[in-house]
């Protein structure tokens, strides 16, 4: 009896990365086949920011001064977009996999060599830099990188090359955060 209990609470092993890769590739393929566009994650958050700006600072977002002017032009609702539905799906799908594989747990994950506080600060700063980067890059790892490589776009290969190239260049300086 006890053994069964332990098994129920042990997180299951992760999927084989190549199997996950092939399945993810098929998801991208069908996304293009069905809707002409691929995956995307950052777009929904940019649109969310544009939506809030539309409500609280409409004069800003409805002018050329805003990077999100094209989301709200002609009084359009920035949230009426497929990427918003997609990110809702990502949350649902992630939660389902976590529930099925016994990985649902409120937890701040960090290397044992750093404190929770250090990890928290690094996560916010890293997120902010990533946010600025994905705005300049016109998409993130999924929308610019993965989709871009799938359709053999130059932009996709350049963005992915820079993410990993610069990542390796600076990894040494931030090694204490991870190893």
């Amino acid at each position: 009896m006890e053994e069964i209990k332990v098994q129920q609470h042990t997180p299951r092993k992760y999927m084989n990365p190549y199997l996950a890769g092939v399945l993810l590739g098929l998801v991208i393929l069908f996304s293009f086949y069905l809707t002409r566009e691929g995956l995307g994650a950052s777009g929904a958050f940019k649109r969310g920011v544009a939506k809030v700006e539309q409500i609280i600072i409409p004069a800003h977002v409805n002018s050329e001064k805003s990077a999100f002017y094209h989301y709200v032009k002609n009084g359009e609702d920035p949230l009426k977009n497929r990427l918003v539905y997609m990110i809702i799906g990502v949350f649902i799908g992630g939660f389902l996999s976590g529930a099925i594989n016994h990985r649902l747990k409120l937890k701040l994950e960090h290397s044992p060599k750093i404190t929770s506080k250090t990890r928290a600060i690094a996560a916010v700063i890293g997120g902010a830099i990533f946010g600025i980067g994905s705005a300049f890059g016109r998409g993130c790892t999924s929308g610019a990188g993965l989709d871009g490589m799938a359709v053999l776009a130059t932009s996709g290969f350049v963005v992915v090359g820079m993410i990993f190239g610069v990542g390796y260049l600076v990894a040494w300086f931030f090694r204490k955060l991870w190893i």
Binding site: G93, S134, V166
Partner: peptide
């Protein structure tokens, strides 16, 4: 943009899609 995303990834440990799915669990 790619360079900043690389730096953000190393410091923050996520990208937008992965952070959404990790938040969900």
């Amino acid at each position: 943009g790619g360079a900043l995303m690389g730096i953000g990834f190393v410091i923050g440990g996520f990208c937008p899609g992965t952070s959404a799915c990790a938040s969900a669990i």
